[in-house]
Design a binder for these strands. Structure first.
Length: 425
RNA sequence: GGAGAGUUGGCCGAGCGGUUUAAGGCGCACGCCUGGAAAGCGUGUUUACCCGAGAGGGUAUCAAGGGUUCGAAUCCCUUACUCUCCGCCA
């Protein structure tokens, strides 16, 4: 959520910047400013009336104490009008505040200056890649779903029986590979100074709002209506919400957390080739990294997170590319996002395996996540960042497809101490 | 799930309708004192919003929301959470 202060002081800038995200903010921005003016006016007169009322009450108390019943009762009669006026203003104020909030919640985050404009993934900007000359699949490489069938690694049909489409069952060495990847990713994060947490896998409405899933993307999460709880779509939600309603001290930056969680996504729509096999699932495993930073350092931190993710992919010896998302492809909450994609050689497709973003103060404003400096008075909004490090299924897909040999799937060296075997067969 | 007891500032803890502008203590910050420190003394110490160029002033905030009252930390209702006991349970 953008702050009303920012909107009020730089309305044109906000409108211009949001055009990069193909969002026409004009009507909302000016309506919000109008509501805010109204809010201030109501607040001012309301407070004045309240101050008057407080004084009167105090005087009445004194009169009673002095035994002047008569005068006290007369004074009491005079308070009725004031009381009504206060009530009236309070009602109006609450209404205006609600309307203002509803407007503010509709505005996406401002994209960073470097974000290219554009509508679709076509307009994303390549940052770098270790796989410049993409080779076509001429040697008959099998897609991962056929490989997993051949070696009986993943049972999609069994998942359908137990739950439904998009909930695969991993078996034998594949189950161990999953566990190995999780352990490997966590160790890498811990090595880089992230503190591990194991958060709840269900969150309440406040948490959903804090990171921006609610109210807009409600349909993306599984909702346990009986208890009004949501299954986490990513560890970002519970981990970032640890810091909801928190005032950090400046010297606590950077806050670094990592968490492994299963992730649950309803992802309605979209069928066919794009969602075959492991490409898109309703439940998948992911290790997430989250940082809370001082606004002055958040972009340096974003780069560090990118390097962290890049180093893991390198250790897995996978072909990858890093792209910066254009305005149209970015999420509602992000100011700058880098996507990591690995190349899956049989499908001949780039698969997104990580998304690393700086949300600046957008989530922090929803979360009321602030920091203060001992030397100064007052608080400021912190910056929040997060990234996948990494999401498992597509990494597994790429490993299967790229490392297939007549003898089986070769496990990258970095993983062998975690898997305990060199080859999947 | 049932019964009972709670939730007060950074922390402990008093207050149960009006000198509470939330006592007292601890912690923290600054000052005095000291050769320096401790102790002692003094001052300050939530957050948000509004008015104001600023100095400063105002309003709200005693778990959250509503109500009663001229006036609520205090009384009433609803919700959340914590603790104790019972039930169930990996």
């Amino acid at each position: 959520m953008l702050t009303i202060q920012q909107i009020e002081t730089q309305p044109e800038m906000v409108i211009e910047r949001l055009k990069i995200k193909n969002f026409d903010a004009k009507a909302i921005v000016y309506k919000a400013i109008e509501y805010n003016q109204e809010r201030k006016k109501l607040k001012t007169t309301g407070d004045q009336h309240q101050a008057e009322m407080n004084q009167l009450s105090k005087a009445i108390g004194q009169l009673f104490k002095d035994g002047k019943q008569q005068e006290a009762n007369e004074a009491k009669d005079k308070t009725a009008d004031l009381k009504n006026a206060i009530k009236q203003i309070q009602t109006e104020l609450a209404e205006v505040e609600k309307e203002l909030h509803e407007l503010l919640v509709q505005l996406p985050n401002l994209p960073h200056e470097s974000v290219p404009s554009g509508k679709t993934a076509e307009d994303n900007k390549l940052i770098r890649t270790n796989y410049e000359n993409v080779e076509p699949n001429t040697s008959g490489l099998l897609p991962h779903w056929e490989l997993s069938n051949q070696y009986q690694l993943i049972d999609f049909e069994l998942g359908v029986k137990l739950t439904g489409a998009g909930f695969p069952v991993y078996k034998g060495k594949m189950a161990r590979l999953q566990r190995a990847l999780i352990q490997f990713f966590l160790d890498e994060a811990i090595e880089n100074g992230y503190e591990e947490v194991i958060p709840p896998l269900m969150v309440n409405e406040d948490s959903g709002f804090g990171t921006g899933q609610l109210p807009d993307k409600e349909g993306q999460m599984y909702h346990a209506t009986e208890d009004n709880l949501y299954l986490v779509p990513t560890a970002e939600v519970p981990v970032t919400n640890i810091y909801r309603d928190v005032i950090l001290n400046k010297n606590q930056f950077p806050v670094k957390n990592t968490a492994y969680t299963p992730c649950f996504r309803r992802e309605a729509g979209s069928y066919g080739k794009d969602v075959r096999g492991l490409n898109r699932l309703h439940q998948f495993d992911k290790v997430e990294i989250v940082q809370i930073e001082h606004p002055e350092h958040s972009y340096q931190t974003l780069e560090k997170m990118v390097l962290h993710v890049e180093s893991i992919i390198n250790k897995l010896e996978l072909p990858y590319r890093i792209i910066q998302l254009c305005g149209g492809d970015m999420s509602f909450t992000s100011a700058l996002t880098y996507d990591f994609e690995v190349y899956s050689k049989a499908q001949e497709k780039w698969l997104e395996v990580s998304s690393v973003s700086n949300f600046e103060a957008f989530q922090a404003n929803r979360l009321k996540l602030r920091f203060k400096d001992d030397k100064e008075k007052g608080t400021h909004l912190a910056h929040t960042l997060n990234g996948s490090a990494l999401a498992l299924p597509r990494i597994v897909a790429a490993l299967l497809e790229n490392n297939q040999t007549p003898d089986g799937i070769v496990i990258p060296k970095a993983l062998r101490k975690y898997t305990g075997f060199d080859i999947l067969n």
